[in-house]
Computed example of a mutant assay.
Amino acid sequence: MIERSSEKITKQLIRSILEKEWRANDPLPPERELATHYQVGRPTIREALQRLERDGWITIRKGAPAVVNDYWKHGNLMTIVNILQHHDDIPDEFIVYMLELRITLTPAYVRDALLHHRLQIISLFIPLQELTDDPQSYADFDWKLQKSIAELSNNPIFLLILNSFQDIYGKMAEKYFLEPSHRQASKHYYEQFLEATLRGDLDQAESLTKEMMSTSLELWKTKMNGGI
C-alpha cells in the first residue's frame, strides 16, 4: 500500500513533537511555512494537521497556527500507538504501562467470556501442548489467546482496545518473554487457568488471571531493576 503524502507528514510532525522540537503549548509554523518546508500543497498540510488533532497531538485554531497539546492529557489510544510506532525498540516503561493496564482490563473480559463461552475458551488451549520454549512462540500464543478471549466477551470494546495495539503487542511480548522465568510463569498460569476452566471454577480462573497480571508486572519491574 502506497503511503499518502499527508500520512508521511503526520509521522514526521509526530516525531518532531516526540523529540521535543515543539513542546506542549508551542505554536506550530503556519500552514504556508509547513507546505514550503515539506514541499507539498496546503491541502496536504491541512489533512495532516487534521489527523494530528484527531489523535490529540495538536489543537487547530481558526485564523492562527495550531498549538501542540500535552499528548498524555489530550491523546487517545491511537496516540499511544503512534508513540510506540516511532520507537525501533519498545521502551521498558511502556511495557510497565501496558502491564498495569492489563491488571484491570484482562480479568474483566476473561470473566465475561467464561460466563458465556467456557467450552470455546477451553479449545483455545489446544496449541498449548505444542508450545515451544522461545519468545516468539509465547508472544504469538499469548496474543492469539488474549484476542480470542476478548472476542468471546459480550463487550466488543475489549476487542477494539486490543486491536489498537495489534502492531506493537508482538514486539512488547517478545521483549517480555525473552526471560525464561517469564515464560515459565506464563506456562504455569496457562495450565492452572485451563484446569480451573475445565472444572467450571470460574471464580478461580478469574482469580488466577488477576494474580498473573500482577505477577507479570512485578517480574518485569524486577528485570528493569537488574534482578533486584
Rank of each mutant, 00 (worst) to 15 (best):
T209C: 02
M1P: 15
A48G: 06
S153V: 02
L217K: 12
Q146T: 02
D142P: 07
N82K: 03
Q12L: 15
R183L: 07
A48T: 07
A150E: 01
N82Q: 10
R61K: 14
D92W: 04
Y190F: 09
E206K: 07
T104N: 01
R51S: 12
H182E: 05
Q146E: 07
I2T: 14
D134L: 06
L84V: 08
E33V: 12
T132I: 09
E31K: 13
P156D: 07
L114D: 00
P91G: 07
Y176C: 11
T10H: 15
K147C: 09
Y189A: 04
S186N: 10
R118I: 03
I121W: 01
M1I: 13
K147R: 14
T197V: 08
Y38T: 09
Q39N: 13
R61T: 13
N25A: 14
S148T: 12
P43C: 07
Q136F: 06
E130S: 06
H86G: 05
S148G: 11
T197M: 02
H116C: 04
P27I: 12
D88G: 12
G56R: 03
I95N: 05
A196N: 01
A24L: 14
L115A: 06
Y109D: 01
L84T: 03
S164M: 12
G227H: 01
P91Y: 11
I121Q: 05
W72G: 14
P27M: 05
I126D: 09
S6E: 10
S186K: 04
A150Y: 00
P127R: 02
E21G: 12
A66P: 08
D142V: 06
I168V: 06
R61L: 14
E174T: 02
Q129A: 09
T209W: 00
L114A: 04
I17R: 04
L18G: 12
V40Y: 06
V68S: 06
F94W: 11
M78L: 13
L145M: 02
I60G: 08
L114P: 02
L99F: 08
K20E: 15
I2A: 13
V81T: 13
L77A: 15
V68W: 00
M98A: 13
E7Q: 15
H188T: 12
R102T: 00
